[in-house]
């Protein structure tokens, strides 16, 4: 059952597959048509379907990247990516994980240095959208912790799967948010792209929400996501500007980011 139907290198399927994403290759041999029309022109339908459908999948995942550089530029860049890194899995929801790194190294886009980090934010939104369901911690469970304040610094936070943090040297949260309104251009002119920003991306109910975090809050959350105790994370957060402990905890609770609290060292790290 697993034996190849044709020896390697024969026209079908090796040449057929190789020619789909490489326009420099001739159409595969062994194709025919009923009326003597050019099989290569007919084969081009498949080339287009493969290329266009994968570019469309990227355009669905990266709409803000597309808006930033324009449809023509985006599709030309995406086409190079599709040819260089076609999907390995038939589940296209996850396609594009390598796209931000590709954008970062894509010379014609070098004048838009924040583009790759905006792509990272958009990819994180897709992952969070499809992440496993989990019940966020109940308010009374949090309230119960307050009965024993001495244990609080030693607790670690268990995050829900549908939550991730991006730390960037660019204003990714503001750039992304500006494209969610009807007047992207007006909002963009008020943004300094070179202002570092951090984005907490969490699914609350059925909606993926993006929240900007100050550097200190982001350092605090990043430490917690790495498995640090609350006490350890406070020290890390306090080392950077803009740390507001109550604000950061309130943000995590409001974002439904927290699944529960466990004694540090006993919980799963993520």
């Amino acid at each position: 059952m697993n034996a190849p139907l044709f020896p390697a290198g024969q026209a079908w399927p090796d040449d057929f597959a190789a020619a789909l994403l490489d326009p420099a290759r001739p159409a595969p041999a062994g194709l025919t048509s009923w009326n003597g029309s050019d099989p290569a022109q007919r084969f081009a339908v498949y080339r287009n379907n493969v290329t266009v459908s994968l570019i469309d999948a990227l355009a669905d995942t990266f709409p803000v990247v597309q808006a930033l550089v324009g449809v023509d530029f985006f599709r030309a860049m995406a086409r190079e990516f599709v040819r260089a890194a076609p999907p390995a899995s038939p589940v296209l929801a996850g396609y594009g994980d390598e796209f931000p790194a590709f954008v970062a190294g894509f010379a014609p886009a070098a004048g838009v240095p924040y583009l790759a980090d905006v792509a990272r934010l958009e990819y994180a939104r897709v992952l969070v959208f499809h992440a496993a369901d989990a019940t966020p911690v109940a308010a009374d469970a949090v309230a119960a912790l307050l009965a024993e304040p001495a244990t609080l610094p030693g607790l670690a936070v268990r995050f829900v799967p549908a939550c991730s943090l991006l730390r960037s040297r660019w204003a990714i949260a503001s750039l992304w948010a500006a494209h969610q309104t009807d007047d992207a251009a007006g909002d963009l002119s008020r943004i300094d792209p070179a202002a570092p920003e951090n984005a907490l991306v969490c699914r609350r109910g059925l909606d993926v929400e993006v929240r900007a975090l100050a550097a200190g809050d982001a350092a605090f959350v990043a430490a917690l996501m790495g498995g640090a105790s609350l006490g350890e994370a406070i020290a890390l957060g306090a080392g950077e500007p803009g740390f507001d402990l109550a604000g950061a905890l309130g943000l995590l609770l409001a974002a439904d980011a927290i699944a529960g609290f466990t004694p540090a060292g006993e919980g799963e790290q993520r």
């Binding site: 399927p13 597959a17 379907n49 493969v50 390995a88 296209l92």
Partner: peptide
């Protein structure tokens, strides 16, 4: 077919 080797082509491709 839609996959060959490690690649998924996202199209319904013909076979002899």
């Amino acid at each position: 077919w839609s996959s060959h080797g490690e690649r998924y082509f996202n199209d319904l491709l013909p076979a002899p």
